[in-house]
Design a protein around this nucleic acid. Structure first.
Lengths: 342, 342
DNA sequence: TTGTAGGCGTTATCAG
DNA sequence: CTGATAACGCCTACAA
């Protein structure tokens, strides 16, 4: 009943015949310790099974090696890829990742921010729930460094990483314009959503570049951007005889549109061209052309920026990185043919 | 230069004209504090913008309200669903979730376990990388409560949640047997993988129940269980004239097999029946029948078990919950037809 | 019902 | 290069 669990610095110091300061130093600033002493201390650490207590360190230092990560949805392959990259990068630097899924709920976001503040987390990567930056400012004021993900930040307030959706829309429609047909249809989400807005802008740019009137773009707006909505929109496209070169704001929608078109007796790609956006795995098993996004790079760069701010302190300058998406053309392979599912 | 950042219990106490003990109590054991005092303290907390310091609390208590979560892959929809459930449940109880993606790498797993130990995390939910339980035992010995996910644990060592893969295989093949044809083919991963082994067992059970010889099950084993492998296996199935009632160990494989079959001029479901496993989103946009798993429930239950162990302490008894999967039959809808992708 | 005080394990400062 | 020591902020007996 006398043996004390979880030996601390003192036990190690005693065991190695040195002071606690020296033990702490061999762990955190090894260059300050003589080789021989270091070896002895390390032996003791191993012998006692000593595990440093981060809570104590955090208390003392006032900051905790934790990176908060707030995303709207883990089931979404786009964010999942970012999570993957972030977790990996954090692991490399021995930071913990505290995950929050906001589900677009400001209260959840706020709650996680509070949690991070209580933990004195060093920093956080966040995909903000809405345009209201007050919650972010609050957390930042508390000392937590923030990097915005998938959003552009005012350079004054912090770093950010995002993807160029205007360029993405441009790439998609430019590709459609290379095929035959006249006019272009866009199946979009609500334009209040930045991504939807920007991709449409890019689509218009492509039309302009091709010498067309950007207002000739025929737009169908869906409430929910999923497969079922795509099927439904396909009906309206045919009914209204809208252009058969169709840019869908995401891959699920695109797959739905193709399904709906096919259900009405049209052949794709013979009678209609469809391009999606996102390349989120659904397309891997299909021949759907789409626009890919450097998801892993985004997550990676976000961590890099955060750590730079954490390390460099004063000399750090905020930057807003915008990654270019890229066109992924599929369906031109030699064995292109229908994909039939039972 | 005199104002001190981040007020502590003392500042609040001073501001409210009470002692630190009372402030602590109004936060952690409100029932011990008079209503009026409580109100005053709360007002001061709000006024000063006080945010409790979890590091200090953890140091004092010896344990941190953090749940470690170790999964093999976040991009995998199965695990992503579990993450979603866990994060949500943890949030409800104001626990932080420290995420690790092991990528089947024991070193990564070990590193995360170390991290959790250093954080004095209250508990962890883990999908173990391999069958070696020594790393788990080590973390457990350190005081971190563990719940195994997607694996069955010896009831002596801890709780676990899993899904009944034998039943899943049984359901899938029973369904296939209802269709026309003779014999059944299984497209499987390596049988050393527990899921693959169990699902095959279930498949055999179904055959036995139908009065067939379980050894009549024709098995194709693929190294990587993805779309491309499915396409390739379809070739071999046709070449060897294997049974056209095909149970694929996951949906991607199933989609690939259908693709490969179609490429060889066969029609699905007319000439072949294919069923997948997992229901991981790919199927939502298809008419592929599959076996669904209660992913969210698993994550939820895992947290419940962990918290029970954390709260109840001594009176807690370890349990191994095995969830039943369920058959999802698709493709019988009125507008069943081909899905063509450009 | 409220106040007091000791100590949790580290880090960092300052002498030696 | 090493040792001693004072915080860091909170929890919890225990005392009043």
């Amino acid at each position: 009943m006398t043996t004390t669990r979880q030996p601390g610095l003192v036990s190690v110091a005693r065991h190695a015949g040195v002071s606690v300061g020296t033990v702490s130093n061999t762990i955190n600033r090894p260059h300050l310790v003589a080789a021989e002493t270091k070896a002895r201390v390390r032996a003791s650490i191993a012998a006692l099974g000593y595990v440093p207590n981060r809570a104590a360190a955090a208390l003392r230092r006032g900051s905790n090696p934790i990176i908060g990560l707030v995303i709207p949805d883990v089931m979404n392959a786009f964010y999942a890829a970012i999570v993957d990259a972030v977790v990996e990068a954090a692991d490399r630097h021995r930071y913990a990742v505290s995950l929050c899924v906001s589900h677009d709920d400001p209260d959840r976001e706020r709650r996680h921010f509070e949690l991070l503040a209580e933990q004195r987390a060093a920093g956080a990567l966040v995909v903000p729930v809405d345009a209201d930056r007050s919650r972010l400012a609050q957390l930042r004021a508390f000392g937590t460094r923030l990097v915005l993900v998938d959003r552009r930040a005012e350079e004054a307030e912090g770093c950010s990483v995002a993807v160029d959706d205007v360029l993405g829309g441009y790439l998609a429609v430019s590709h459609l314009l290379q095929g035959q047909g006249n006019g272009v249809t866009i199946v979009n989400g609500h334009p209040a959503i930045p991504q939807c807005h920007d991709r449409r802008e890019g689509a218009r740019d492509a039309l302009v570049e091709a010498g067309r009137n950007p207002d000739s773009l025929i737009e169908f707006v869906v409430a929910t951007m999923n497969f079922a909505a795509g099927v439904e929109v396909a009906r309206r496209i045919v009914a209204q005889d809208a252009p058969r070169r169709i840019f869908c704001i995401n891959d699920q929608l695109a797959l739905g549109v193709i399904e709906g078109l096919t259900a009405q007796g049209l052949r794709v790609p013979e009678d209609a061209s469809v391009i999606g956006y996102g390349d989120l795995g659904l397309g891997a098993s299909s021949r759907l052309s789409t626009v890919g996004q450097p998801k892993h790079e985004m997550g990676d760069e976000a961590v890099r920026k955060l750590l730079d701010e954490l390390m460099d302190g004063e000399s750090h300058v905020h930057t807003a990185t915008v990654f270019p998406p890229h066109l992924i053309v599929r369906g031109t392979s030699s064995h292109a043919h229908d994909l039939t599912v039972a």
